[in-house]
Design a protein around this nucleic acid. Structure first.
Lengths: 260, 260
DNA sequence: TGCAAGGTAATGGTCGTACCATTTGGGGCG
DNA sequence: CGCCCCAAATGGTACGACCATTACCTTGCA
């Protein structure tokens, strides 16, 4: 390594307390104030071992922490190493999603919250979404409807498409905070919509309603769109309530284990 | 360790891919489906080394990751070890704060999101909040107004009180999701509010408006309350815009470092 | 000359061992 | 009976070795 490291002198040997925490703080500070930009590469573990005056295990633990924080991305092999990463909103959503998985909420509360978000997002998306976005949303909704009208719908595929559509809609709102929350909600719980599409009674109505909603959005008709959204959540509430009336598997209602 | 570990047979030796990731997944799964409850202690690193059939470094890296996720808390010394922790919303806040530091979102987006939440919360709080809650909210708002009318207001105190009022309002909505999301975003908001209360021009109006809002909520008048909330955000927008017009200290606008 | 195959060096991933630092708890001594 | 000190448990750190993967370069063949 004859090439001069940019990070030469950027880091101080650690002396106090938990060494790895100290390293995390130093690197994090360097990223936050721009001394390290996204895409830049940190020295190799063995070089940092020298710069920080610490053992390699400590360096690796610090990198692991920073990786988990979403600040670093690690590639192996020659020209590999730890690279500064531009933290994306999905990472923050994961954090919230994990929290939500550990704190089960009443389905009604979840529906209430989602409906609130959905209404706000829809209005914003109509105002800000591009024509291409709206066309794509409509096409997706119609594809979802087609999938759901098949005699034996692929629920995994429809669930996935439903998620993608919701996420696209949130993105059209052009406000990362809405995107963050919706994305977290999707990661945190998902089986409501899944259940909605699982029931053949609700499936068709919900599918048609999605298309209607997308059409209203594409046409720039917020009032119509909000009506359809209201309809969607009426269906969802009916579906959830009808399931909770039936005994059996009521105890663990809406948290699906990501079984792998 | 003659005592039988509860975790005996709970974990499988790792064989595939990145070993530490595999361990993280196994422990996370155990926590998520309740096999490991908050407060419980995992085996010692040396024991897990045997259970997972991996080196100690790998175990430690997995623990570090889980610690960073907020799922574990590590204590050293005898009777120490890794303990399952009940993930709190503050952890999500940290994650979001880091994101906001790296991707400063337009203050307008922040305000937009918050206004949406606030309107929904207000309507719910009026419908569901107890009389005692409403009285306490009103009393707090009036105390805030009194504090802000002093010639030299204690901005730290008013900021704290404002925070408490917002949190109380969110709690009155009786939907934990609103409360969590508002909590997670508190620190993104706080410097805006700080600016609002720091400016003597806006201070008085905002203070009076808080009281008006609380009064409308206490009186069960949603339309009035929403009008006042609209007024609040008009003020906030004016304040932010007037600050962004003035050069100087615009670079570091709204995130205050939680220095500890 | 061009391209493909194999070698080589850089680098993260894993393992093992040894030792240090901290905390708990109990046993011995006053 | 109470205080102090030592021993055990356990996380924290260091060092060294080797493996696996990857990018790059050299060599040799067409």
């Amino acid at each position: 390594m004859t090439q001069v490291e940019k990070t030469a002198g950027m880091f101080m040997p650690v002396t106090i307390g938990r060494a790895s925490e100290e390293i995390v703080l130093q690197v994090e500070a360097a990223v936050l104030d721009g001394r390290l930009a996204p895409g830049e590469r940190l020295p190799s573990e063995r070089d940092m071992q020298v710069q920080f005056g610490a053992g390699r295990g400590v360096i690796r633990e610090a990198i692991k922490t920073l990786q988990q924080k979403g600040l670093l991305e690690v590639r192996k092999g020659a020209k590999g190493g730890a690279f500064v990463r531009s933290l994306d909103v999905a990472h923050v959503s994961e954090s919230l999603a994990l929290f939500l998985k550990l704190h089960p909420v009443n389905p009604e509360k979840l529906i209430e919250f989602r409906e609130t978000m959905d209404r706000a997002i829809t209005v914003l998306a109509i105002a800000r979404g591009s024509a291409a976005d709206k066309a794509a949303l409509l096409a997706g909704a119609q594809r979802l409807e087609a999938l759901l009208r098949e005699p034996e719908p692929d629920l995994a595929a429809t669930d996935e498409l439903d998620r993608a559509l919701n996420l696209r809609l949130a993105r059209m709102a052009a406000n990362p905070l809405f995107e963050w929350v919706m994305s977290a909600l999707q990661m945190g719980f998902s089986s409501h919509d899944y259940a909605l599409y699982a029931d053949p009674v609700f499936r068709e109505k919900a599918a048609a309603n999605w298309s209607d909603t997308a059409q209203a959005i594409a046409a720039g008709e917020p009032a119509r769109a909000l009506s359809f959204i209201g309809h969607h959540y009426v269906l969802l509430r009916q579906c959830v309530e009808s399931r909770s009336e039936r005994p059996g598997s009521v105890e663990v209602p809406f948290l699906n284990e990501p079984s792998d």
